[in-house]
């Protein structure tokens, strides 16, 4: 069998080699770039996390010392806890996005324009969103302070309150994220099968049951992507924290992404090894979600 196949194809030996080599020619530029700037640095960072290094002098091998130190670092725990709060609360973006999408999924005059304007916050840089909300929360002249005063309350300085600050930043972060989930759901809704809806309606399904049993199952791909991008976004949160509080007051709004930056590259010292250890922890947390996503993708590819 083998032999006859071989003979059959040997006349097309050039053709065959061409098809073996060509993919690599197309792939090489992208792969080289991606290896240099993304894949190799991941391993280098993990490697650096076993050293004590100020970025200038000689790096000193310390084994697991950086990780041992992390176990006793209360700022690390605060950041980890905040990342967890981010993760949980940020996921509110998914139901909220669905809610707004359902509200906007109508045909009336100008609805497309409304949809675009609702999507607006996602297009703006998080730096700008952070500034807008710093101003919104400002206890002296912010919008929130005005609302509090007009209701007869003392204004609260949310961003200087250790217990509220993280929630304040997450609330700001939800604004663009809800817009993102909304657009995913709007696209999903426009593809919901009419036949199924009609059938369910004839069976007398009422709105909520219809949503739960007929519509949501069809929106599953949109939900999946919303959840994935929201989790990744929550764990990546850096810009908002940097702009609004720089992790303060007293590290109470810190997250791993910002704490890593602070340890490695700010006036608080250049502890690159320790920073890398924090980054490595964050990376492995993220790897759980990346693996899950790849597994789903794999099942999809194989048509399972």
């Amino acid at each position: 069998m083998r032999r006859s196949n071989h003979l059959k194809y040997s006349t097309h030996i050039y053709q065959k080699n061409k098809l073996v080599l060509s993919p690599w020619l197309f792939l090489i530029p992208g792969i080289i770039f991606f290896l240099i700037y993304v894949i190799i640095p991941i391993f280098q960072s993990i490697w650096v996390s076993f050293y004590e290094w100020d970025g200038l002098g000689q790096a000193e091998w310390v084994g697991l010392a950086n990780y041992v130190e992390l176990l006793d670092d209360e700022y690390f725990y605060t950041s980890l806890k905040n990342n967890f709060i981010w993760l949980v609360l940020y996921l509110l973006a998914v139901p909220l996005g669905l809610f707004i999408a359902l509200f906007l999924n109508q045909v009336v005059f100008g609805i497309r324009f409304y949809k675009s304007l609702f999507f607006f916050p996602f297009v703006i840089s998080q730096v700008v969103v952070g500034l807008i909300f710093s101003w919104f929360y400002n206890p002296n002249f912010g919008l929130l302070a005005h609302i509090f005063i007009s209701l007869g309350f003392e204004p609260i300085a949310i961003l200087s309150d250790e217990n509220l600050v993280t929630y304040g930043i997450i609330f700001a972060g939800l604004w663009p994220q809800v817009a993102y989930c909304m657009i995913l759901y709007l696209t999903g809704l426009s593809n919901v099968s009419r036949d199924l809806m009609e059938a369910a309606r004839l069976d007398g399904a009422k709105s909520w049951r219809m949503l739960w049993y007929v519509v949501l199952p069809q929106l599953r791909p949109a939900t999946f992507i919303s959840v994935v991008v929201t989790i990744i976004g929550a764990l990546r949160s850096f810009d908002m924290v940097a702009i609004m509080t720089e992790g303060g007051p007293y590290g109470s709004s810190n997250v791993l992404a910002y704490y890593m930056f602070e340890t490695a590259l700010s006036e608080y010292g250049f502890r690159l090894g320790y920073g890398s250890a924090i980054a490595t922890v964050l990376f492995f947390i993220m790897l759980i979600y990346i693996t899950y996503f790849l597994w789903r993708l794999y099942k999809n590819e194989k048509g399972i």
């Binding site: 640095p41 850096f238 490695a264 990376f283 990346i290």
Partner: peptide
Amino acid sequence: IFFLFVAGNFVPFQILMIPVRDM
């Protein structure tokens, strides 16, 4: 290779920061 591209796209920036800056 496809999975490598997808996975790399999701990593936290901080894991790349020190080597990329150094380079």
